[in-house]
């Protein structure tokens, strides 16, 4: 099984034997991979029934809850080594509140999201006059679950505002490759951003 490239990147950032919480864990691929290869334990949070069933099939712990209701009720402070949230923050009602809760539950978090500042999005909105539809953001404006899209700069500004320190950042293209263009001009050529953040 080949792992989605952003998930493969994340697994390089996580220490073996750690305890993680995966917010919006989908079918549990990341948790299963980390469990099988690095003895990582933890829980996934998901709301889609078909994904939940897939997690159960893979013997991955999954808890059905709505991230918009927050995670403070569910998890004690500092109860995980990492919280991971891959491409879900843009669909959250109050991302700034959730980020705060994430870094309460764990000192370290890994967040990935589609970069709204990618050149093709800029081109579509700036010149075409349309809300962008791209490979990593395939929905139209009226049916998109992505209500809080941001650029790398937006996210980094929010981190400063919330007192969050960025430990590492990688940007990749929609094939999740770390190409030279996105290395030199990340905010223009990066389609998916991956951040390791902390409040320490």
């Amino acid at each position: 099984m080949t792992l989605r490239a952003d998930l493969a990147l994340i697994s390089e950032w996580i220490k073996a034997d750690s305890r993680i919480l995966d917010l919006g864990c989908g079918d549990g691929t990341l948790l299963r991979h980390l469990r099988d290869t690095m003895n990582v334990s933890g829980y996934g949070i998901e709301i889609e029934h078909t994904d939940i069933v897939k997690c159960i099939e893979s013997d991955v712990n999954v808890i059905q809850t709505d991230l918009d209701e927050g995670i403070n009720d569910y998890f004690d402070a500092d109860s995980f080594d990492y919280v991971v949230m891959t491409q879900a923050i843009q669909a959250i009602k109050r991302p700034e509140k959730l980020l705060d809760e994430i870094l309460r539950v764990s000192s370290d978090a890994i967040i990935t999201f589609p970069n709204m500042g990618h050149w093709s999005s800029r081109l579509q909105l700036g010149l075409g006059g349309h809300m962008p539809v791209t490979k990593s953001l395939p929905h139209s404006w009226y049916n998109t679950p992505n209500i809080h899209l941001c650029t790398l700069k937006d996210f980094e500004d929010l981190c400063i505002e919330l007192g969050i320190r960025i430990i590492k950042r990688r940007v990749v293209d929609s094939q999740h490759r770390h190409r030279w263009l996105s290395k030199i001009f990340p905010s223009l050529f990066g389609e998916i951003a991956i951040y390791h953040i902390t409040k320490k």
Partner: peptide, 19 residues
């Protein structure tokens, strides 16, 4: 059931919760 699930998580148990 959510209360129970929360307590199971706090007890560090393997648990899946479905609503």
């Amino acid at each position: 059931s959510r209360e129970l699930s929360r307590a199971l998580v706090a007890a560090n148990q393997d648990i899946s919760y479905v609503e």
